[in-house]
Design a protein around this nucleic acid. Sequence first.
DNA 1: CGGAAATTGGACCAGCAAGTACAATCGTCA
DNA 2: TGACGATTGTACTTGCTGGTCCAATTTCCG
Lengths: 195, 195
Amino acid sequence: MPTTTAKGAATRRRIVEGAASEIRERGLNATTLDDVCRRSGTGKSQLFHYFPDGREQLLHAVAELEAERVFHDQEPYLSELTSRAAWERWRDAVVETSRSQGLHCPLGVLITDMGRHSPTAQAVTAQLIRQWQECVRTGIAATQAAGEADPALDADRTAAAVIAAIQGGVSVQLSTGSVAHLEAALNLCLDHMLS
Amino acid sequence: MPTTTAKGAATRRRIVEGAASEIRERGLNATTLDDVCRRSGTGKSQLFHYFPDGREQLLHAVAELEAERVFHDQEPYLSELTSRAAWERWRDAVVETSRSQGLHCPLGVLITDMGRHSPTAQAVTAQLIRQWQECVRTGIAATQAAGEADPALDADRTAAAVIAAIQGGVSVQLSTGSVAHLEAALNLCLDHMLS
DNA sequence: CGGAAATTGGACCAGCAAGTACAATCGTCA
DNA sequence: TGACGATTGTACTTGCTGGTCCAATTTCCG
């Protein structure tokens, strides 16, 4: 592994981001390394220079980038989940993000496309799920502490259910194009928690 | 399209079932037509004889088969959903099926793998979702009529949430190997409905 | 400056998978 | 039986994709 300069790091970044865009827009198995090179204005020699293990290694980097993006999108809402109004803002943000991104949703791509085939990407998604669920769990506990949520709920299991609801809504959206299921699932979770 | 004899129909069936097994066990993109031929004890000439449009057409047939299988597995439970005990039996059946099939779950394969890439398979999954959701909706309405479920619930939206919960639980399972999210999501739905 | 190391371009290779060609059988029905 | 269409085996073609090679060029740094 040669030491890398600023220029090299920039190229590497262009490659990863180009790959992420390409995968989001056209799907994982439809994306070839040549596509990535064309998109990022590089050649295969660069790609294999920065990712000596080839496709797998690049995919791992993409998975990390997408995981970070998903988490980053949620963060501003996740930290303030204590009131019903805050939960509803968060729900609206989730639905709206999913609607506007449509099939190009990083979460959907990450979990449904990448998660299964390469074990390395699977580790990244598992980590994302854990981290995300932990944030939701914290929000639920805070809402309970604020007296706005049913104190009898198991915060961790409920958080798991919320994550599954989102994931399921997104999956259905990927098949049908409609966010109705995502909305319904989130509404049910919120209604159950905040009563 | 030549007229097909009994022997031909049997061969065709073997091909579709072989393809379905192969896809369930090894994933969609890892399954080649040669794999399917080897598995079903046929050759490419048969495959293209019965599926002149090749891979796409075969995938469509596989999607139909899997959709039917998913629906058929649920059917005995879906028709008797009126009491809490019945809902719990159904939940246990869903979880157990998903657990035992693990990564070989037809539903997961169908929606997460096949649904997106070929529009024809997408139509099949959309149909499956509609049909399934309708059954759940009927069960919810029946439970409400029996006085065991909250009558204020919108049966259709609730059914949509339940479908999303299952789908999400299965998706998470495909990434993490654990059915905990599926269980949590279904439990939340049941708790919300039956109170 | 000047050389070593990093970076880049682009041709090339090997293998695999979808799809084709075609001839050889098999089955059925007049 | 015999002919015609359905069925099947095999070898082949074609295109693409991940990955390699190597020489040219740029960048860094004493």
